[in-house]
Amino acid sequence: MLYRRTAQVFVELADTLVAGFDVIDFLQSLAERAVEIFDVDAAGILLADPRGTLTLVAASSEEVRLLELFQLQEEEGPCLDCYRSGTEVTCADLSVDPSQWPRFSAAARELGFSAVHAFPLRLRDQVLGAIGLFNAAPRELPEDTTTVAQALADVATIGILNERTLREHQVVTEQLHFALNSRILLEQAKGMLAERARIDVGEAFAVLRKYARDHNRTLSSVSQELIDNRAGMTDLIAAARKRTG
């Protein structure tokens, strides 16, 4: 039963990896499905940003949302330990040894949770976050369940990394286009200024640069305005003519 339901989730997750992938939707559905599959009462997912700061990205219930936020705020709890160590962290009964996470244990009991199992979202050496499974009653997860839970966490990790790679590609592509366009724009603006002010293109560059500095603007924005406004920027044209006498 466990394996059949898990297999279904893997297929669903694989589908989300193709078109229109939204990482937040993906993780929210993962948290909800984890509750069904592992027969736990709640699940929450913490994800680290590129600087290593953890944030809550998905929660199956309001109670677990509050408990995950409590861990982040107090900087104490099993999900944080799991993220920091990159290994599974479990506590089958939070009332047995409250000294491990005194504030977290108290908050958990107040919100109605007695057991917690946290699995790292990990690919090789990289730990991206943690998924926490919570139970109202004290409970030990069977070994086959923990194996499957870690496999699910691994799939989530691949999904997140896949999305990040695509997003970085887009950023790099945009930067490359922007850089190339800025170069071309500057050359065109040099030519236009050279013609309007009757100076050579080398002088035009010096005038554009000085104008940009004097007005605390970028070369690109001055170039763009000159090109967009062929009759305008008379102060720049006057400065260019004056420069060469």
Binding site: E187, G191, A194
Partner: peptide, 9 residues
């Protein structure tokens, strides 16, 4: 590109 800017003017 410089020539394009000059011709535009």
């Amino acid at each position: 590109h410089q020539a394009t800017g000059m011709v535009a003017a």
